[in-house]
Design a protein around this nucleic acid. Structure first.
Lengths: 132, 132
DNA sequence: ATGCTCCCTGTAGCAACTACAGGGTCAAGA
DNA sequence: TCTTGACCCTGTAGTTGCTACAGGGAGCAT
């Protein structure tokens, strides 16, 4: 059994975040000590580690919730898990593509500026709606 | 002069978003009709277009605010503009790198699953803290 | 007894909108 | 003239995923 602070250290999670996960129902309310302190067992540690790892991989809390409920049902519905992971992957692909397009536009814009001694700023011009 | 709805259509911006920009001081409060409707001139259209284009390029509202104040000062401080743009570019590079690393991790995880007929789900295992 | 670190609850803040609720305005058609 | 419908108004609360207090209590060392 460990305190919330110890759990936080073990999972690299802020105390407030753990309480937040409890509030939104991602973590079950743990047992309390006489002094009303939360105490966590190994299962809670495993669950929070799972949540954090999923979050690090970019899953939303809703997706994490879905993954957790699938693992909570003993029936390991691998197809659904696979679909969630693949959907997430597709979204990341989209984001990468968007950012690469953005980088291209930005770099074109910045190139045209060239250092800062031009009287009319090309970046501002590039952002402006009408050609001056 | 145009209504808020017309301005929204012209700049592909929701009416609520325009009012929000006004509330946070990004757009000046426009003139009103007798019936208390907002009316916008061409300058407002240009300003909102600038904002939207900057947002599309991923600048934060704070960055947009800085860019706008630089253009409002007649002195076109190209160096500052350039720095804002380059900082933003660097951040986008970071995001791209992060997402690509993520994609790699995710794809390894998904590959190992292979379709959904395994008894212990490999994705769940990959997310779990301990090897079962 | 005092200080220190930890813990508690509850609420408010962040970005950048979005979505109502509960009304007023205005132009066009019957 | 009346009414319908599309638009507009203000104000407030919701979204995501936390984070940061404020104002207290618990527990341990000196």
């Amino acid at each position: 059994m460990r305190s919330i602070g110890a759990l936080g250290k073990a999972t690299n999670t802020k105390v407030e975040t753990i309480r937040y996960y409890e509030r939104i129902g991602l973590l079950a309310p743990p047992q309390r000590t006489d002094g009303n302190y939360r105490t966590y067992d190994d299962e809670a540690l495993a669950r929070l580690s799972f949540i954090r790892r999923s979050r690090d991989l970019g899953f939303s809390l809703d997706q994490v919730r879905a993954l957790l409920s699938l693992t909570d049902q003993g029936t390991q519905d691998c197809k659904t898990v696979d679909r969630i992971a693949r959907d997430h992957m597709a979204e990341i692909e989209r984001k990468i593509a968007d950012l690469i397009a953005l980088r291209h536009e930005l770099s074109t814009m910045i190139e045209s500026c060239g250092g800062g001694n031009i009287s009319g700023c090309r970046i501002i011009e590039a952002l402006s709606p009408f050609d001056n």
